[in-house]
Amino acid sequence: MKEKRLPDIVYSLVFMMIGIFSFVIAQGFPEDFIMKLGPDFYPELLSVALIILSLTLFIRTILGKNTSKFIAINIRDKRFQKVIISLGLAILYAMFLKRVGFIPITILFLFAFLLLLNIRKPLTLIAVPIVASFALWFVFQKILTVSLPIGLLSLLGY
């Protein structure tokens, strides 16, 4: 495996930006004259610590003292694309859960996900989504009394 330095540089810069961002926002928190230490004190302390630590990681990486090795993200890698598509499926699922309703959207989601992971047997593709959706619905709705979104089924008068 080839050693890649770039990811650690990117990560340290991202954490540094998070530190600076949270520090700047904490500046806007009101001061507390009676207690001396207002709501800004602790986040500021942490932000400064985060900035110092990520700066250290950044410098160590630049100087070549960082020995951690890992595979950089490669957009053209098929396996990485699968991760992105599965995230996309999950986003669609969350977006349409309320409107479409739990059971139909879960069946669709599972079907698409199984296809994505190279399942091609028709029986598996149909049976697994249906059985799993109804099982989840039964456990959460009936046993744990969570009210799952009904969605389209409400049109049928349920």
Binding site: L110, L114, V128, L136
Partner: peptide, 20 residues
Amino acid sequence: EILFPIIFCLCIVGSFSMRQ
């Protein structure tokens, strides 16, 4: 390949269920 999609569903329903 069959387990992970179901686990993913469980993640989503589990997150949803506490505060609905």
